[in-house]
Amino acid sequence: MTAPLLETRALCKTFGKVQAVRSVDLALPRGRTFGLVGESGSGKSTVARLVLRLIEATSGDIRFGDEDLRRLGGEALRRRRRRMQMIFQDPYGSLNGRMTVGETLVEPQLVHDIGTGGRARRDRARSLLREVGLPDSAMDRFPHEFSGGQRQRIAIARALATDPELIVADEPVSALDVSVQAQILNLLGDMQREHQTTMLFISHDLRVVRYVCDEIAVMYLGEIVERGPRDRVYDRPAHPYTQALLTSAPGSPRKDGKRAKLAGEIPSADAIPTGCAFRSRCPHAFDRCKIEAPRMQDVGGGQTAACHLLDR
């Protein structure tokens, strides 16, 4: 196996008393799609921003290729950023409403000094548009003239404009209607295969993550509780939280005629339970879970999980 494109070690981020990300280890294999799943407050979006250095980590390492990303500054970071792009949930908020689509696609080329001359850059912009399924005539129009799905296509074209190695997509289809969502998921898949891009795909939607991702990590209260190849995690979830997530979706089998598999709610990130953070909602919690935080352990097939039950 080749070295991962992006790797984090013991990555932490605190906002005042809030521990948003707690010692996250990630390794994104090149050319694959890595899914980060979790409910609100799990820290998944914070991880996305940390690895792009849109916000600074409190501690821990981020390696991008063979570079220590946290040590890069100024010009070196700016050059590195060409290789990392982001797609956001809300394509309305993330596109500049006063720039035409053409300008939106030419600007990143200018910033990163790609192509020679306006004509070449505009040609490239048009070919990016065609790649995401939009006509050349979109060049001179503004984002508000497009539907949500078309705007997300524009955001994808903009992300591709610098020919990035890594794309971080944070809930890229959550704001879209299902019929359009499927179009964008297919497009992201095609793009990833075509360009051999590495993708960090962040979502709360387990159906979408299953469709898109090769590997998955499940987050709860700032920590990764389980990680592994897609089919392993979906078919044989080892952590009680993953098990509950997968069976809470509407239509899943019910226990005692109820849908809910977990009682209570996610604790606040400034009052994380001692020991295992999940124990306050875990149906299997026992004494040890109060005292000792479980470590990640191998459960076979490249799958790891952090749960004391695995020792039993």
Partner: peptide, 20 residues
Amino acid sequence: LIEAVPGETTDRLVPIPGSV
């Protein structure tokens, strides 16, 4: 609508073409 939602397989999704 039903076919556009990802299921348990990774077969290519069948989106509804165009938009509302």
